[in-house]
Design a protein around this nucleic acid. Structure first.
Lengths: 229, 229
DNA sequence: TAAGATAGTGACTGATTACTATCTAAAGTA
DNA sequence: TACTTTAGATAGTAATCAGTCACTATCTTA
């Protein structure tokens, strides 16, 4: 027996405007991402989305032919934003290795702000159901990896990264590191914050990549905040 | 219109034996894991399990009160096997760092043989639905991390790993690396094999951890197959 | 202001699925 | 062989959910 919440729900009931289809589509994507962020992708129903927007469930299907089309559009939307953030961070780097670091933390903080993203990538039920989603994510990952490998190549050319490092593998590890951190922070919930763990873990990766001169030989080349924790 | 497959199905219909409850439970767990490996956890229904065993769907619930109890039992079963494999690998290491490497590859090949495992860990719908599952996985991860951190501590004491490396972070990265690799191999399917990627990526991690002497100073301390790819 | 376009409604459908009664028959045991 | 136990069969139920469809209300435009 659920009350209809006569007055609480209709804070601005008269505002129930007809919306331009384009705007509504964006709203639906937004709602889907918000819901997925807090409850996981798979548990979000079209009814939930409709409720969040004050629509009926059927109305959702005027704007998207299929529920998976909503997720597809959502991933497209997210890709645009992520790439913008990451590219902006990379150009701020003083050198290729620094750019890589800035990219890493920009990516991590973006994901921390938009928890729906990893939930979509991790949901193999979603990816298995709709090939388009899988292909899109493959495409995103591949492009991203190429970008990282490019920076690593530059770092090697500049004498910052060791020659023996395989760019592609290092790029794979770069992304894998992020995915692993995300997964763990999602499993441990509040007990492990993504940005904090990222801060502790990245230096180890960096030390695996870069040219480094040990104490036993001569003075350190670049003193990169050490023993911070 | 699905045919009843009159004769094909009943290859050994008279053999329809009543089974000991204990055995049947194990069979169900096995079937659940097999199905999850090939089709993803969430899409496995109790009907699927029953079909795989030649039972009716209702019969499943004589052995487990709830579907999630099946997953719980499955994770328990998997934990036992994984820990055995990993511990055995670790004791074969000549030194702590070598043990770490052997653990890594043992873990990776175990997962490659049992693809259901990452699917369960990654399924946040599953973990969100049943707290017991989440807690169990947290417990497994925590224990595993402690084991790795311990080995890293020994490696430091033995002068094999750098003193500045934070054991806990390095352990987090160790596990994160595996999770990231698994995820990518699941997204890229056949195009990227887990063990192959693992082989390429681990050396980078190792170089982030261990004491290393550059060419410019004196001869390499330990030549660990370099430039293999 | 009349007409056409379309965002949104409301009620429905069909498929799926975890779980549950009630009955049947196969095993162990006296 | 009679009796008890219990694995499994049969046949449900209630809930959930994506997608449909005929209709209504609102907006735009001629």
């Amino acid at each position: 027996m659920r009350e209809e919440m006569t007055s609480t729900e209709g804070v601005d009931k008269p505002r129930r405007r007809r919306m331009d289809a384009g705007e509504r589509q964006e709203e639906i994507i937004r709602a889907a991402l918000d819901l997925a962020a807090s409850r996981g992708v798979e548990s979000v129903t079209t009814q939930d989305m409709a409720d969040a927007l004050g629509l009926t469930q059927g109305a959702i299907f005027r704007h998207f032919p299929t529920k998976d089309d909503i997720w597809l559009a959502a991933i497209h939307w997210v890709r645009g934003r992520l790439m913008k953030v990451v590219d902006a961070a990379a150009t701020k780097g003083e050198n290729p290795l620094d750019a890589l670091e800035k990219m890493f933390f920009a990516h991590v903080s973006f994901i921390a702000r938009h928890p729906a993203i990893p939930r979509m990538v991790f949901s193999d039920q979603l990816l298995r159901r709709d090939t388009r989603l899988k292909l899109l994510i493959q495409e995103i990952l591949t492009g991203y990896e190429a970008k990282i490998a490019g920076l690593l190549g530059q770092a090697k050319a500049a004498g910052l990264a060791r020659q023996e490092v395989d760019e592609d593998s290092a790029a794979t590890l770069f992304i894998g590191m992020i995915q692993g951190l995300v997964l763990q922070s999602s499993i441990f919930g509040g007990r492990r914050s993504l940005p904090e763990e990222a801060k502790k873990v990245f230096p180890i990766y960096l030390d695996g990549i870069r040219v480094r001169v040990p104490d036993s030989c001569h003075a350190r080349k670049t003193e990169v905040k050490r023993g911070g924790i």
